[in-house]
Design a protein around this nucleic acid. Structure first.
Length: 121
DNA sequence: TACTTGACAAAAG
DNA sequence: CCTTTTGCCAAGT
């Protein structure tokens, strides 16, 4: 099933936070994306900062939202400090993502762009 | 209503 | 490559 129509930015019935959560849940295991990529997909290319904040509001609920698959545009695990339990680096490595010093080695290879994978409207 | 917060991004030096 | 500066804007107070 395609992405829920609620992801469309023109639908004000769903908060920006929830739209972010929806997209993050679509990230496949072993792949990662960036805050900016998610923001662009949501039609809010200039709200990349809000994406991370949205994840923060989810209280690092890895069970529901794989926030560890979201990094900044350089592939650095800047959100690691918000993970109380298992650090992002370890979670990613469990999925086969090579990480060194809080930075994804082959970022270009594991990068998953929702705008391309899910299609842009 | 007005001000503050940020898990970012891009550009400049 | 590194640091600083600037633009951003939804949500919380």
């Amino acid at each position: 099933m395609p992405v829920d129509k609620r992801l469309h930015p023109d639908d004000k019935t769903v908060s920006f936070f929830e739209m972010v959560h929806q997209v993050v849940q679509l990230i496949p295991s072993g792949r990662v994306t960036s805050y900016g990529a998610i923001a662009r997909y949501l039609g809010a290319a200039r709200s990349s900062r809000m994406v991370g904040w949205a994840l923060n509001s989810s209280k690092t609920n890895i069970d529901r939202i794989p926030a560890h698959r979201v990094v900044n545009r350089k592939g650095m695990l800047t959100g690691n400090v918000h993970f109380k339990g298992i650090p992002m680096e370890q979670l990613l490595q469990q999925e086969g993502v090579s990480v060194t010093d809080l930075k994804i080695d082959n970022f270009n290879e594991v990068f998953w762009d929702p705008s391309e994978e899910l299609g842009l409207d």
